[in-house]
Design a protein around this nucleic acid. Structure first.
Lengths: 248, 248
DNA sequence: ACACAATGTGTAATATGTACACGAACCTTG
DNA sequence: CAAGGTTCGTGTACATATTACACATTGTGT
């Protein structure tokens, strides 16, 4: 049984990425604080999905818990990208108000551990509407109002993602179980902000023996149907020479 | 002015690497706890260099402070490799004794942020002897007695180092300002536990325009003297195409 | 002057990266 | 049912990078 007694000065924040076959998106929570008397909106902006850890849970468990609550999914790809303990994390006046409100003066400075989560959009669509949580294109984040240092944390996560995606086959976490090569290419282009030549991209993928063509083809599309592919982690683990770069 | 009031449940631990032109070493602190009455040694093993953070300092500052105290050096390469908050970090009986002793029952579980530090051995040799701190070859760590989860943290740091060294020019942090290509090769071999062909290694380095030959040569060696080289971060920043891999 | 020890260099075969254009398959529309 | 629209899937020539492999050079020490 979990106590739910929080550790006041330690939190986790999750930067959850998703891909809609067009662009990369991030899951953000709408934050709203109303004046208790007149209902006037004091704060309205966005935060990452995060919360204090509980006294009897690991950092990883805390992040899993938050993601489960948000998406209903277990077994999401989840990896730390850093710990942040700047003294001025809560510096804007509005954040101070909020901080007082939720933190009840427990701690001056909260150290937060940032988690990068990658999820397959096709497996989660529903449970989001009933909460104040939604997807935002990563390209729009720069113009958004965000709480605390969450915009900074977001960019830290994005950088970590871009670094890792070149070296480990984690991009597949953002795709459904089977996918076309064009989808894979669009994903890498969205992740890295570049564009690739189709033939060269496919030549590269052909060397990755863990991206395996299926018999299945696309159906009901108004053009030549594409073949579906599969990412096999087993084959990846067995065949990697430590040399493969996912940079195209 | 720093208050020196500690945050009881947050610490940093530094895994400090050095290179002696032969092998990779790590800086460890000897830990000894004696019985207050009869002087009997209760614990004798090794820990990473770490301590609680202070209430009015950042995580990075705490790590810098610890390293400064240990080596007398500022401006050391320092990078987080992870945050660790397992509930059983202090599980062995001896560690519990120690924990009670230094922590005075303040907190049940300490979250520690791991820092990877790379230092140029030639700049620090002195100040270590007067403390219970010394260098150990990384290859011997597996057989050492270590406190808490510090052996685990060490291996986490080593893995992070091996990953990063392939992708960023951080190995140079372990070398003096100028160095020979043989030294550079030995370093990479020590870091990655492999060995390279001399000619191919040098061909690879020749592509790295930020490794610049000096006029200077070795002196007083009983063989053909080697040329010295320099790592230029400026040239690196300017000329990197995002493609260079430090994997040889 | 000779032995010793580490430095510094080239070539050929293979693999990888890059630039670039068009027919094929399926759906939609008139 | 023919024509048009859209995305899929493919090959070649050139430049660059990787790999495997052996010996003369330059200094010191005796």
């Amino acid at each position: 049984m979990i106590s739910h007694k929080i550790v006041p000065n330690i939190s986790v924040d999750c930067v959850v990425f998703g891909f809609d076959f067009e662009k990369l998106n991030v899951l953000l929570v709408e934050r709203e604080l109303k004046d208790e008397k007149n209902g006037e909106i004091l704060i309205s902006d966005h935060t990452l999905a995060g919360y204090h850890i509980f006294e009897d849970e690991d950092l990883d468990s805390a992040a899993s818990r938050i993601l489960k609550g948000l998406t209903g999914l277990d077994n999401i790809f989840l990896e730390q990208f850093g710990a942040y303990g700047q003294l001025d994390r809560v510096s804007a006046p509005k954040d101070k108000v909020w901080f007082e409100h939720i933190n009840k003066g427990f701690a001056d400075r909260v150290v937060t551990v940032g988690y990068l989560a990658l999820i397959d959009n096709t497996k989660v669509t529903l449970r989001l509407k009933d909460r104040n949580v939604s997807w935002f294109p990563v390209t729009t984040v720069s113009e958004m109002e965000m709480a605390f240092d969450h915009k900074f944390l977001f960019y830290e996560a994005l950088q970590a993602l871009q670094r890792k995606v070149k070296v480990e086959p984690i991009a597949f976490e953002l795709l459904p179980d089977y996918f076309t090569l064009s989808q894979l290419q669009k994903l890498y282009e969205a992740l890295l902000g570049t564009s690739f030549d189709k033939r060269n991209f496919r030549k590269k993928v052909a060397q990755m023996h863990y991206v395996i063509p299926l018999k299945k083809k696309q159906q009901g599309v108004a053009h030549k149907p594409a073949q579906y592919y599969l990412f096999s982690r087993e084959v990846y683990e067995k065949t990697r020479k430590g040399r493969i770069s996912f940079i195209i």
